[in-house]
Amino acid sequence: MSEEELIRCARLGDRDAFAGLVSAHEKKLLALCWNMLGDREEARDAAQDALLQAFLNLGRFDAGRSFVRWLLGIGAKRCLDRLRKRKTFLRYFQGHAGEWLGGAVPGPEAAAAGEDAGRLLQRLPARERAAISLAVFEGFSAREIAAALGCSESTARVHLYNARVKLKKEVADEL
C-alpha cells in the first residue's frame, strides 16, 4: 500500500494502516525525542505520545505536505511540552527539596544529563535544541522549523546559529 492509501485508511480508524504508516519513520521520531530530551525512556514516552497525537489529529493532516515532517513536528512540540514541565518541576523541586531531603540537591544540568548520548545537546536551551535537532538530524529548513516550533523563520535561524555557536564552545571546553 502507498503512503497515501495508508493515510486514507488510518483516517478511517484503521490502526494497522497507521502502524504501517509510522513504522518507517518511528526511528527518526525516537532519535529526535532522544536528542531533545536526553533520556531514552522519556524519549520513548514522548514518541508514543506523538504517535497517538498524530493518529488523533490525522484528519487535520494536509495531504500536500510530507507526513514524516508533520509527524516530527508533533514530536518536537511534545518534547518542548515535556521540557517545559520538567523545568517547572525542577524549579519547584529545588525550592522544596532542601526541606524534603535535607541534603544536597542536584542541579538541572545533572538531572537533564541522563545519558551520555546528546549530553552536550542537553546544555542548550529547549528551543535551540529543538531547532538544531530538526535542522541537522532531520534536514529541516528554517521555514519548516519555524512551522514546527510556531515561531518566525528568522527566529528559527537565530536559534540555529546560537545553538551552533554554543555547541562549538562546549566542544572546545570539553577538549
Binding site: A19, K27, K28, W34, L51, L52, G118, V136, V165, L167
Partner: peptide
C-alpha cells in the same frame, strides 16, 4: 564560530544508531 553539521551529528543520536531499539507501540 559555529559548529558544523558533521560535528553536531556526532553529538547526538541518529536513527541508524537505533537499529536495536524495540519498536514503538502506537496503541
Amino acid at each position: 564560530q559555529a559548529l558544523g553539521d558533521a560535528a553536531i551529528l556526532s553529538l547526538g543520536v541518529t536513527p541508524a544508531g537505533l537499529r536495536n531499539e524495540p519498536p514503538l507501540r502506537p496503541f
